[in-house]
């Protein structure tokens, strides 16, 4: 069986921290781990190192800040700047956290199109002993990291400028850690499913992940309480992990400062964590099946290295 070589040919550029990870004995024994680390390293290089550092920094800060400022202006135009109201913290924090949702959901599908149509490396990737599934997770992890940095910046920005009531006392640390782990796991599962399906789509679906995450704005209560939605749409929202994750994160960060709404009134923190756990398992199992099915379909249709050039 062909495996990924643990030794890099002489003369290649060092990969810094990634090199240290790749040299760990248990990593060297696992093709999946090596594929994941290489995918994450490559994703980070594409996102950051290939750009001018100043441009990368501005882009990482400006886009999320602008996104949240749209809501701040919309809210302020109507309420005459009443940012001390609990609903403002609800909307603001939901939008800040949603940056991560967008990164995770869109990151993997973007990586598929990027490799295939932009850098044209799909042939090389999928004819190598790479573990494709783990590699894509790695590419998604790089986007997740950038999304997490942006979320932290936007949240701090909100606390400092708009008085979002997050304090040391308001944070429920154990629930926050559990929410982050379970939420990210379930969202990654969904991101993998979208990414896997992207193997069969043309370039006009290059924004599939981003568009899906944009659409989920509507159903997940990111920008407004689910109670505002008509009952049918509200029920749709309850099938997505992002809905529960956003509720969990708001509770964990805002504590008693959070405004409550009837939709989640019956669910305590443990119940929400349990739902996220069930969704994580379900989505990861589904993602494994969808990935295998989609890869097979893409190979059969001959679109694994599709270049659309519209």
């Amino acid at each position: 069986m062909t495996t990924l070589s643990p030794v890099r040919p002489e003369g290649e550029r060092p990969m810094g921290f990634a090199d240290r990870l790749l040299s760990l004995p248990f990593v060297q024994r696992s093709d999946a781990l090596r594929s994941f680390i290489l995918g994450a390293w490559l994703g980070w290089q594409i996102e950051s190192n290939w750009a001018d550092p100043l441009l990368f920094a501005v882009y990482s800060f400006a886009r999320p800040i602008a996104s949240v400022m749209i809501l701040v202006v919309m809210y302020s135009v109507i309420t005459d700047g009443a940012t001390q109201q609990p609903i403002f913290a609800y909307i603001y924090l939901g939008n800040a956290l949603y940056i991560i949702v967008g990164g995770v959901l869109g990151g993997i599908s973007w990586a598929v199109i990027d490799d295939r149509e932009h850098y044209r490396t799909a042939k090389q990737l999928y004819t190598s002993p790479l573990v494709g599934y783990a590699y894509l997770c790695g590419r998604g992890a790089a986007r997740l990291l950038i999304g997490a940095i942006s979320t932290i910046i936007v949240t701090v920005f909100g606390v400092l400028l708009f008085g979002i009531p997050i304090t040391i006392g308001s944070i429920d640390l154990p629930f926050l850690i559990a929410s982050i782990m379970l939420g990210l796991t379930s969202l990654s599962g969904l991101g993998l499913i979208i990414g896997a399906i992207s193997f069969q789509l043309g370039r006009n679906a290059w924004q599939a992940g981003e568009l899906i995450s944009g659409a989920l704005y509507l159903f997940t209560g990111a920008l407004f309480p689910l109670d505002i939605l008509p009952p049918v749409l509200r029920e749709i929202g309850l099938i997505f992990p992002a809905t529960y994750w956003l509720e969990a994160m708001r509770r964990a960060l805002l504590g008693t400062n959070m405004i409550g709404f009837p939709t989640f009134a019956a669910l305590d923190n443990t119940a929400i964590a349990f739902i996220l756990l069930i969704m994580s398992v379900g989505l990861w199992v589904s993602a494994a099946f969808v990935y295998r099915w989609s890869m097979r379909q893409a190979r059969e249709k001959g679109v694994i290295d599709l270049e659309t050039n519209y």
Partner: peptide, 22 residues
């Protein structure tokens, strides 16, 4: 991808205005 999904994103901003009583 180009119609249904962007539609949902726009609708969500409508609900933001409705949530704050615009």
């Amino acid at each position: 991808f180009e119609t249904v999904l962007p539609l949902a994103a726009t609708v969500s901003y409508v609900f933001v205005y409705q949530a704050v009583g615009a």
